[in-house]
Simulated scan of single mutants.
Amino acid sequence: MALKSLVLTIAIMAVLSSMSHAGEPSPLQDFCVAVDDAKNAVFVNGKFCKNPMQVVADDFFESGLNVPGNTSNPLGSVVTPVNVNQLPGLNTFGVSLVRIDYAPYGLNPPHTHPRGTEVLTVFEGTLYVGFVLSNPGPNMKNKLFTKILHPGDVFVFPIGLIHFQFNVGKTNAVAFAGLSSQNPGTITIANAVFGSDPPISDDVLAKAFQIDKKVVDYLQSQFWWDNNI
């Protein structure tokens, strides 16, 4: 019995240990304002940290999320991020924020965040949102979860899964989203697959998508818009 308890304890500790390393490392000090110049940096933790004696309030401040983004592009949407690259004081805290503006029928196209879960709330307008599960197994399809969101509604997109938002209304829409990473990254599926540099072999894509190579060549010749500022 004692041996079983010991084995169970070790198993639980292993699981907790793996969970603690699944996300970003915990801060080792009160803050670590990111700085690019290593000569002026101390206390490395994720990025080089600004000398605490030189930290000021503006290192923790960013403005402008009240200003609508320019949606006059082929997608009809624009993402305004506030991550560690815009707000150095976020370094080591494992969070970031975006504002997303949508023109009528504007789309934030299918994409993933490889390093962060996203929780989105609609401020104005009506959005059709959804995400797709990862490969479920043999003879099973990737399940799609969708919802129509109105102002005040909240929806979560799990880390790494393909998701999207589409403005189904006739007016502009605005949403804000928090992400569980200081730098969650974005992989826009169409851009990455058909707009990579250098291009992925059309033989590979034709077989993967089960389409003619001429279709692949056409898609690769298009300009793939990035709606992230």
Rank of each mutant, 00 (worst) to 15 (best):
D58L: 15
T171L: 08
S134C: 11
N183P: 13
V35A: 02
V98R: 00
A192F: 03
K4D: 15
P68L: 04
F43C: 11
N183F: 11
C32Y: 02
F157P: 01
N45I: 09
V44T: 03
V67Q: 14
V82P: 09
T9L: 15
P104Y: 12
K213Q: 07
L219S: 03
L205R: 01
V95P: 06
F43Y: 13
N83C: 11
A41L: 05
C49P: 06
F194Y: 12
A190S: 12
S77T: 01
L219A: 11
S17W: 09
P52A: 01
N139Q: 13
P110C: 14
T188R: 02
S5Q: 14
L6G: 03
F155E: 01
K4G: 13
A57V: 13
P25D: 03
S17P: 09
G178R: 00
L120H: 00
L16A: 13
P109W: 04
M1G: 11
S134G: 15
F93R: 10
F145S: 02
L28Y: 00
A173R: 00
L133C: 03
G64M: 10
I200S: 05
V78N: 02
F123A: 15
L161R: 00
P27M: 08
D217G: 04
V216T: 05
D36P: 08
A103K: 07
E124P: 04
L90Q: 07
G169C: 09
F164K: 00
V44N: 14
F194L: 10
F176R: 04
S221L: 05
S18P: 03
P27E: 09
A103S: 11
N73P: 05
G46Q: 06
G89D: 06
P110N: 09
V154T: 13
S196H: 10
A206W: 05
G23R: 01
V122F: 03
H163T: 06
H111E: 07
F209H: 02
V156P: 02
N108A: 13
P198C: 12
G169Q: 05
T188L: 05
N70C: 06
N135G: 11
D212P: 05
F194W: 04
K170R: 07
M19F: 15
V174A: 12
V193W: 01
